[in-house]
Design a protein around this nucleic acid. Sequence first.
DNA 1: TATTGACTTAGAGTTCACTATAACCCTTAT
DNA 2: ATAAGGGTTATAGTGAACTCTAAGTCAATA
Lengths: 121, 121
Amino acid sequence: MEYTIGKAAEAVGLTTYTLRYYEKEGLLPEIKRDKQGIRIFNEKDLSWIGLIRCLRNTGMSISDIKYILDLIREGEHTLPERIEILKSHKKKVQMQMEELQAHIDKIDKTLDWYSDKNRNY
Amino acid sequence: MEYTIGKAAEAVGLTTYTLRYYEKEGLLPEIKRDKQGIRIFNEKDLSWIGLIRCLRNTGMSISDIKYILDLIREGEHTLPERIEILKSHKKKVQMQMEELQAHIDKIDKTLDWYSDKNRNY
DNA sequence: TATTGACTTAGAGTTCACTATAACCCTTAT
DNA sequence: ATAAGGGTTATAGTGAACTCTAAGTCAATA
């Protein structure tokens, strides 16, 4: 399957603005163009963009994602570093989840407090 | 215990800039001042700021937090709405955690892929 | 044939949440 | 007495990540 930028944006849940911005920032690999210069995205591109979304949603910055793509472009010898980056990012996300749980506990406590008589805030 | 803005900032892990910014944005209740106009924070203020930090860290916007304080100022009859807001925020955080877990699964899959021979990105 | 609609570019504008500056005022220690 | 080190204000600047505009091209349809 091939996709123009509009179709690709729809498929991955981003806007065309964002996709062009990502390309400009170096987050995308070379995207094929037709004779009119129109971008043609393929499945592999979409799957990479899917990973970008995943990393962005878990708080990785644009420039860190760009760094991973730079490693990919450098070739196979960067594989261990890429794996390391993803593993450490995963650890970060897991810690983030633990903190969220702590925050939920705090919210629960505030709710308890509200149902008490001695509330203030 | 009483705290100047510097001590308060240190106690809650924010900067003095941020605390003044929060006050300006209406996120803080009336903070007591001494004769020189210097802010004097008390324990109750710090505990409220602690809740602000918790809500911010879980993605609640400044203006939504301001809204909660506005409700508090309106009095006890807004209690049910406040509880509702916190409960629904809690639900949002829990969903956020589920998504994070899904993202971790995706990262794991990418890692598996990397250890395969048929990798690309 | 003309207009619609999706694409192109470069570059400007927006939003959010701070973060910093300038110019000032008090209090305290040297 | 003077300078350091906190505080005050109003206002300007920053950085990240988009988001949009203007001016244009091209292909397909009424």
